[in-house]
Design a protein around this nucleic acid. Structure first.
Length: 705
DNA sequence: GAGCACTGC
C-alpha cells in the first residue's frame, strides 16, 4: 500500500512541476513581462497611472504580481483589483493564485457578492467594482489598500464611474492626512464631520481615530481602449502608458451598399463563409432572443437545400436568458466535419469568450437600454454600435489565429459611428447611485466630480424620488433611520423602502420574497416553440391579484419542493431534481437561485437592522396594501379603451403580455417597471384600490389632485 | 402578445 501512495505522489509531483514550468514559460512570453521594471518605476513615481493594455497583454494577471514583488504589500497592505464582472474576478484570481503557486484564498483571493474567498492573509484581492463601493461605506478611506487597480475602465459601467470619483477623493484625503490631516473631501465642500456622523450610525466597526495617518493610495486605471485622454484629463493629466497586446490580425470587410435587412444579409453572409472560406467557426452578433431564434430557424430551413456535403453546419444560440445547460453547448467543439455558427447577443462581446471563432459577422446594431428621467421610463431600443464596440466585436475573430470580420454596412458608415458607447451613468436611473454617494458623505451631488456628469435633470429627478421615498430630509440630508437603513441594503431604493414599510404592515416575509424576485431577471422561461406548455405550467402558480403574489407562490412552491427533497436525498441529487422541477415548470433555475441568494443576504441585513420579520399569513389584502404604500410612485389607472395611464407621468401604457393581469385589466394597479420596446409596457403588476393610494400616500396624492 | 449585457459588505 505505501508504495502505491508513493507512486501516485511522485507522479502527481511530476505533473505539478511540469505545469509550473509551463506557467512560468507562459508568464515570461507575455508582452508585459519585458516592461516589469519600467512599470513598477512608473507606479512609484506617479500616484495615478493610466495603463492602456490591449487584449492579451496580460495586464490583469501580471501587474498585481509585479507590485507585490516590488513591496507594495509591506505591512500587510493589500492590492485591490476591481472588475466589472463576477466571473472575471473569480477566474483571474484562480489563475494568479496558480501562477504564484499558492492556494486560492491565501495570498491571492477574490471577493464577489455571495462569495468571499479572502482571508487575513490575502494581499492580492480581485473583486467586483460594486463590492469595493460597498466596502467604502464601512471604511471610507479604504485604509487597507496600498494600491487600487480599476480594470476595464473603458467599459464605463456605473460602478466603475462612481468608483473613480470616490477613489479620486479618497486619494486626496489620504495624501493630505499624511501632510496635515484633513477629512475626506467629497464633493465641493470639505465634509470633515461626515465620518464622525457615520461612525455614530453604524457602531463600532467604523470607528477610527480621527487623527490616524494613512499611507498614500496609489491608483491605476486600466483600459483596453486606445483613447486614454478622458481618464488622463479626469486625473489631472495623469501619465498614460501603453502596453502591447497579443492579438492576431483580423481582416475587416465592409459591404458596398447599405443593407435594408440585416437579418437577411447575415443569413447570406453565413452561407457565403460556410461555402467559400476555410475551416473555423462563425460568430454572429444579433440584438436579441427574437432575432436569434428567427435566424436559427431560417438557417435550418435553408440547409437541406445545400448539397449533402455542405450541410454540416451546427447552429447554436446564446443569450443571457437562455438556461445555462443550453448556453454551455456553444463551448463544446463541433462534431467532426461540422462548422459551428454561434448566434449571440452582446453576451459574446465581453462576458463570454467562445473558443474556435475565426469569422465574425457584425450587422452593426445593438439593443441598448436608456432611461428617460422625465417619464421615469426605460427604453430598450435597437441602435447602431459605437466604433469601439465594432472593434471589440471584430477582435473576437483574432483570439487564436488570424481571422476575418464582415461588417454588414459600408465603410463610410463606420466613420459616422460614435467613437464610444455612452457611459451607463448618463442613461440610467440615478437613485441608487445618489443614495450611495449620500451615505458616503457627499453633500453636494450636483457638484460631485463625476468623470462624466449625468444631466442636471436626471440628478434632480432622483433626488426628488429619494425625498418622496423618505430617504432624504427637506434639507437633502440622509434621513435617520430610514435613509441610512435604505443605503445599507444592496437593493433598488424603492425596494429597500418597501421592506421597511412591510415590517410595519406585518408582511416582511412576503415582501422579502417579492423584492428578491423583482431584483433578478424574470424567473419564467418560455421558448417560442413551447409557449402553450409554459403558460399551462405557470397557471398553477398564478394569482388573480397580480404578479407579485404569483411570484411568491412560485418561490414558496420551490421552497417546499427543496425542503422535502433535501431530507430524502444527497445535495447533488437534490440539485438535479430541483433543476428538473424548474424545467418542468418553465422556470429559469439560474434566476431562481439568484433570487434565493439575494433573499438570504437581505434577510440577514433586515434582521441585523432589527426589522420585524413577520408574515401576513393568508391576509393578502394586507400585503397588497403594503404594495400600494411602497410603490405609490408607480400606479396606473385603466382608461375606457383598455389601456392604462401611469399617474406619475401621465403616460399611456399597456400591460405587458407576460403579466398574469394581461387579460384581467383591473381598474387600478401598481407596477414595478415601465419599459418602452415596441410599445410602452408596465410589468410586474398587482391590483390595488385607488383609495388606498390617497390613504397611504397622501403626501403624494394630495399634491396630485 | 414579448424579455441587450453586467452588478451589489
Amino acid at each position: 500500500m505505501p508504495s502505491v501512495h508513493q507512486g501516485n505522489f511522485s507522479n502527481r509531483q511530476t505533473q505539478f512541476s511540469v505545469r509550473r514550468q509551463k506557467i512560468i514559460q507562459q508568464r515570461k512570453s507575455l508582452p508585459i513581462a519585458s516592461v516589469e521594471k519600467r512599470l513598477v518605476e512608473e507606479v512609484r513615481k506617479n500616484d495615478v497611472l493610466i495603463i492602456v493594455g490591449e487584449t492579451g497583454s496580460g495586464k490583469t494577471t501580471q501587474i498585481p504580481q509585479f507590485l507585490f514583488d516590488a513591496g507594495f504589500c509591506r505591512d500587510g497592505r493589500v492590492i485591490g483589483i476591481t472588475q466589472p464582472r463576477r466571473v472575471a474576478a473569480v477566474t483571474v484570481a484562480k489563475r494568479v493564485a496558480e501562477e504564484c503557486g499558492v492556494e486560492l484564498g491565501q495570498k491571492v483571493a477574490y471577493s464577489v457578492r455571495f462569495d468571499d474567498a479572502t482571508s487575513g492573509l490575502t494581499r492580492i484581492k480581485y473583486m467586483t467594482d460594486g463590492l469595493l463601493l460597498r466596502e467604502a461605506l464601512l471604511d471610507p478611506y479604504l485604509s487597507k489598500y496600498s494600491v487600487i487597480i480599476v480594470d476595464e475602465a473603458h467599459e464605463r459601467t456605473v460602478h466603475t464611474d462612481v468608483l473613480m470619483g470616490l477613489l479620486k477623493s479618497v486619494q486626496l484625503a489620504r495624501s493630505s492626512s499624511v501632510s496635515g490631516g484633513q477629512g475626506l473631501n467629497l464633493g465641493n465642500k470639505n465634509v470633515n464631520v461626515t465620518l464622525e456622523k457615520e461612525n455614530d450610525q453604524s457602531g463600532s466597526v467604523r470607528k477610527k481615530p480621527r487623527h490616524e495617518k494613512f499611507a498614500p493610495l496609489k491608483l491605476i486605471i486600466m483600459s483596453a481602449s486606445l483613447d486614454a485622454r478622458a481618464f488622463s484629463e479626469y486625473f489631472a493629466g495623469a501619465k498614460a502608458v501603453h502596453i502591447q497586446g497579443r492579438q492576431f490580425p483580423v481582416d475587416i470587410f465592409y459591404t458596398l451598399h447599405a443593407e435594408t435587412d440585416y437579418l437577411d444579409a447575415s443569413l447570406i453572409t453565413i452561407f457565403q463563409i460556410h461555402l467559400d472560406e476555410g475551416p473555423g467557426d462563425i460568430l454572429v452578433f444579433l440584438t436579441g432572443q427574437e432575432e436569434i431564434e428567427s435566424v436559427e430557424r431560417l438557417i435550418n430551413e435553408k440547409l437541406p437545400q445545400l448539397p449533402q456535403e455542405n450541410q454540416k453546419l451546427l447552429v447554436l444560440p446564446i443569450f443571457a436568458a437562455l438556461p445555462s445547460e443550453q448556453q454551455m453547448r456553444v463551448f463544446a467543439p463541433a462534431p467532426s466535419g461540422f462548422r459551428k455558427v454561434i448566434l449571440a447577443t452582446n453576451i459574446a462581446e465581453t462576458s463570454v469568450t467562445i473558443p474556435g471563432i475565426k469569422y465574425v459577422i457584425d450587422p452593426g446594431f445593438v439593443k441598448a437600454r436608456s432611461y428617460d428621467p422625465g417619464k421615469g421610463m426605460e427604453s430598450l431600443i435597437i441602435v447602431p454600435t459605437s466604433k469601439s464596440q465594432a472593434l471589440q466585436r471584430s477582435g473576437r475573430a483574432g483570439r487564436e489565429g488570424p481571422g476575418k470580420c464582415f461588417r454588414l454596412y459600408p465603410e463610410k458608415e463606420f466613420e459616422k459611428l460614435e467613437d464610444s458607447t455612452m457611459p451607463e451613468i448618463k442613461r440610467c436611473n440615478l437613485s441608487n447611485v445618489i443614495l450611495q454617494l449620500k451615505a458616503l458623505g457627499v453633500e453636494d451631488i450636483l457638484g460631485f466630480d463625476f468623470i462624466e456628469k449625468p444631466s442636471r435633470a436626471a440628478i434632480i429627478k432622483s433626488l426628488e424620488q429619494l425625498f418622496l421615498l423618505g430617504a432624504l430630509t427637506d434639507e437633502c440630508q440622509l434621513s435617520d433611520p430610514v435613509g441610512h437603513q435604505m443605503a445599507r441594503l444592496p437593493l433598488d431604493p424603492i425596494y429597500s423602502r418597501a421592506l421597511i414599510l412591510a415590517s410595519q404592515f406585518n408582511c416582511l416575509e412576503e415582501m422579502l420574497i417579492t423584492v428578491a424576485l423583482l431584483s433578478v431577471e424574470s424567473i419564467f422561461y418560455s421558448p417560442r416553440d413551447k409557449l402553450e406548455e409554459a403558460r399551462t405550467a405557470m397557471k398553477c402558480f398564478s394569482s388573480s391579484e397580480g404578479d407579485h403574489i404569483t411570484l411568491i407562490n412560485v418561490y414558496r412552491a420551490s421552497n417546499d419542493f427543496l425542503e422535502k427533497r433535501s431530507m430524502e436525498m444527497s445535495t447533488t441529487k437534490c440539485e438535479k431534481v430541483y433543476k428538473k422541477w424548474c424545467k418542468e415548470n418553465f422556470i429559469n433555475s439560474r434566476s431562481l437561485r439568484h433570487a434565493r441568494d439575494i433573499h438570504k443576504q437581505i434577510q440577514e441585513h433586515v434582521q441585523q437592522m432589527g426589522l420585524n420579520l413577520s408574515s401576513c399569513g393568508d391576509d393578502m389584502l394586507q400585503f397588497r396594501r403594503c404594495l400600494a404604500a411602497s410603490f405609490f410612485l408607480n400606479a396606473a389607472v385603466k382608461q375606457p379603451e383598455g389601456t392604462y395611464r401611469a399617474l406619475a407621468s401621465g403616460q399611456v401604457v399597456q400591460v405587458h403580455p407576460s403579466s398574469v393581469l394581461f387579460r384581467k385589466k383591473p381598474d387600478c394597479v401598481i407596477f414595478n417597471e415601465l419599459v418602452q420596446t415596441n410599445h410602452k409596457y408596465v410589468r410586474n403588476l398587482t391590483r390595488v384600490d385607488y383609495l388606498w393610494l390617497t390613504e397611504l400616500a397622501p403626501q403624494y396624492y394630495a399634491m396630485q389632485s
